[in-house]
Write a protein that binds this DNA or RNA. Structure first.
Lengths: 205, 205
DNA sequence: AGTGTTGTTTACCAATCGGTAAATTATCTA
DNA sequence: TAGATAATTTACCGATTGGTAAACAACACT
């Protein structure tokens, strides 16, 4: 019924997403978002309402295109799936350290905002449940096959906690070898959950 | 040889420390620091040189007065000491949730800066080595007594990774019960390292 | 063709950012 | 007591912050 939008909203959101992901919310100014999208600020505000609105769109986009696709590979997979997730984390870290250092947009945002922004908080909650759900279903599947040693819920939480710990080291700028080491530990811990594994929770390397 | 300083530098640093700890570096303006210390900005700049200088002083203060005293209780303690550390973490979370949500100034700073600020990076490194050193020496002590099951270095890293994971949940504004649950898992994991413990890495609660 | 509606553009806003120059005040030394 | 030195105060700086008002342009519908 009126003039159609001249730019691709999805593409703009992706650019905004990458910008927030790379530099964080507070550190990116509207000028950065203008440069990233090639759009004048007034256009951005007309489309998204506010900087916070842009972040929400970015997070939703990120959840749909980055998070979900990764954890679909974990869903209902088994111990192998969980261990492979951490293996891929390590590979990404080794192959593309700069991208890796950006961490996860949702984790970054939830650390930056805590509970202070309800819109962000609800998305953080969704993220945490998505990750936990993937780990839980994978381990549950393993348990059904009788291959899991230990309590399902506890193991799920531990996998989650280790992943969050990895993100701290990654964002904190820990040396690559340290990240690699921590990934190795996480993988070892997950592998130790196999019913057939030895008695030690964590073997050396 | 000249006019003496009228204010207590240590007290000022403590106020600055609390401010950065509570709100983060970027989110606290010089105006906040003025209010927190009761000192005009020019006085702060005369004393500390720059906002970044204030952060460094704050971190050093924090390391000396908050971190060191906590991890001295862990040094050379044994599994009990490590488990008790996580128990205290849980207690703090339950008794003073608001203070607890502030997380750790050094972890917060290292997440905010990554490797971008060398002065902060060197302090992050110092922090990580302090924490790891405490865990390592505690577990080494336990190993000497033959009470440790598993590889010393790996267990040290796992304890560290779990702690960092806890900080993410804390700063991310996770519900209190979630933090409590995660602490319980961490404690269970540490307890499972006892030579006499059962075969399961993580028992249900 | 005219009109209402929406997107786009340009220019701008007050507020805040980190930081400082200069004048003033207080102390110590000679 | 005079002068040197350093702390304090006041007022200010240019740059940047997130956000917007208003003029203009393009489309759909009657």
């Amino acid at each position: 019924m009126a003039r159609p939008r001249e730019f691709d909203t999805k593409a703009a959101i992706e650019s905004i997403c990458d910008q927030f992901w790379s530099d964080g919310y507070e550190s990116t100014g509207i000028a950065d978002l203008e440069e990233a999208t090639g759009l004048a600020r007034a256009r951005l505000y007309a489309a998204f309402g506010s900087k916070q609105g842009m972040l929400c769109e970015a997070i939703d986009f990120y959840l749909d295109t980055r998070i979900d696709v990764v954890f679909q590979r974990v869903d209902n997979s088994g111990i192998d799936g969980v261990a492979s997730f951490f293996r891929r984390f390590a590979m990404m870290n080794a192959e593309n350290p700069e991208l890796s250092k950006m961490g996860c947009l949702v984790v970054n945002s939830m650390i930056e905002f805590g509970r202070s922004d309800p819109e962000v908080a609800v998305r953080s909650e969704r993220y945490r449940e998505r990750v936990r759900g993937a780990f839980r279903s994978a381990l549950a599947r393993e348990a059904e096959d009788g291959g899991l040693k230990g309590d399902l819920e506890s193991l799920t939480e531990l996998a989650f906690m280790m992943l969050m710990g990895l993100y701290v080291s990654v964002k904190g700028g820990a040396p690559l070898e340290e990240i690699e080491r921590l990934c190795g530990i996480a993988i070892g811990v997950v592998e130790s959950w196999r019913a057939g594994a030895g008695v030690y929770a964590v073997d050396g390397a």
